[in-house]
Computed example of a mutant assay.
Amino acid sequence: MPRPLRADIDLEALCHNYRLARDLAPDSQSLAVLKADAYGHGLVPCARALEGLAPAFAVACLEEAEALREGGITAPIVLLEGVFSAEELAKVDAQGLWMAVHSDWQVEALLRHRLEKPVPTWIKVDSGMHRLGFSPERAISVWARLSAAPTQACDLHLMSHFATADHADTEYFQRQMSALRALAEKLGAPTCLANSPATLARPESHGAWNRPGVMLYGSDPLEASNTASRRLSPVMTLRSELIAVRDLDEGEPVGYGGRWRAPRPSRIGVVACGYGDGYDRHACDGTPVLVEGRRTALVGKVSMDMLTVDLTDLPEAEIGSEVVLWGCAANGEVLSVDEVARYCDTISYTLLTGVLPRVPRRYHGG
């Protein structure tokens, strides 16, 4: 019998979340962002499920785009970080990819390279994130140079990234938005600005394209949920079983370092899941877990292959009982990955992308 831990991937939920992103911005086209192995959900299976819905996909790098092409995906693919060397432009050309440019050397490489056909090119603008991109002033000259080279670059867009679109305080978002709006109007340029939180909550940022990412996988990226984000459906359920049950006297410790001690005579369950599978070792005592669809809590430090939960108030739980670390239990109860992330002092992105390859993915629907 195989180890019971698995990640169930609900492709119907993935499609539902994409449709929500699309419907929130009916005048935009929506990229489906599939970087980081589709946020840990499986690059090619997620792309295949979305191929009839999404007009284009977005990834971080050429290797991810090549994996999609090898998996039979023919839709346009945007390289969000562009190329990492001039030599990669040959593959961009051969595979019909779209690309962002964020640095002068990328622009120079694109203008020098002999292409079979012009590359759809998105100019990254640093409007306040201060990672990648040209200043708005510099973007004007880059736009002019690429516009004057129609055999090298075509279908120019401006793109940028918001630092605080997920925050309830909109001051910094509005500063970025004002700079981008002025630049786009000056150039008469179509835009791709809205990430997941902006897609959900900042309709003024919706452009020719939006690029929903983590929301596609059912995680709510907003600091304060809104009506739209509450309609998201979880895509991944990290599911295991109890493999042992122990009875402890009051005061007995559990796990490495004895961090948790039983406050009363307690019943403890051992779950086949640990940090060697990608479950966060920083999860604190009290981190929620579902056992047979009922909420209980993690107790004691997470081990490499196991973690322990409090079963004292769940007398029906036994060896073989279903355990959901996040996602949907068999009885329909849902434990949000966002809630689990808060107990780990992290964000859902790290939990979802951190599920390791030894955890089998099982795909349903789609």
Rank of each mutant, 00 (worst) to 15 (best):
P2H: 13
L5H: 04
R6K: 14
A13E: 03
A13V: 06
H16Q: 11
H16G: 06
N17R: 07
N17G: 14
R19D: 13
A21F: 07
L24D: 05
P26Y: 14
Q29I: 08
S30Y: 02
A32S: 14
K35H: 12
G40A: 09
G40T: 00
L43H: 09
A54D: 07
V59P: 00
L62Q: 09
A67N: 10
L68D: 02
L80C: 07
L80N: 00
V92S: 01
A94D: 13
L97G: 04
M99A: 09
H102C: 12
D104A: 15
A109C: 02
L110Q: 08
L111K: 02
I123W: 10
K124Y: 11
V125I: 12
S127M: 00
M129I: 14
R131E: 07
L132T: 13
P136T: 03
R138V: 14
A144I: 02
R145V: 12
L146E: 05
L146K: 12
A148N: 13
P150A: 06
Q152W: 01
Q152K: 15
L156G: 03
F162T: 00
T164S: 11
D166F: 15
H167D: 10
A168H: 06
E171W: 14
Y172L: 08
Q176T: 05
S178I: 10
A182E: 14
L183M: 02
A184W: 03
G188T: 09
A189M: 05
A189F: 04
P190V: 00
T191H: 00
A194S: 15
N195C: 07
N195R: 11
S196P: 08
T199Q: 07
A201Y: 02
R202L: 15
P203A: 11
E204P: 05
E204M: 07
A208W: 07
N210C: 08
P212E: 10
M215V: 13
M215Y: 08
P221T: 14
E223M: 13
N226F: 13
N226W: 10
T237D: 07
I243L: 03
D247R: 15
E250W: 08
E250H: 11
E252Y: 05
Y256S: 11
Y256R: 10
G258R: 05
G258M: 06
S266K: 00
S266D: 04
G278I: 03
Y279P: 00
R281I: 06
H282F: 11
C284V: 15
D285Q: 06
V291N: 00
V299T: 01
G300R: 03
G300D: 00
K301W: 02
M304Y: 06
T308D: 01
V309Q: 01
D313K: 09
A317I: 07
E318F: 04
I319Q: 14
G320D: 06
G320T: 10
L325R: 00
W326E: 04
A330T: 15
N331K: 13
G332N: 11
V334P: 01
L335P: 12
S336D: 14
V337D: 00
C344T: 09
C344R: 09
D345C: 13
T350V: 12
L351A: 07
V355D: 01
V355H: 04
L356P: 06
P357I: 03
P357S: 10
R361M: 05
R362A: 01
Y363T: 12
G366M: 08
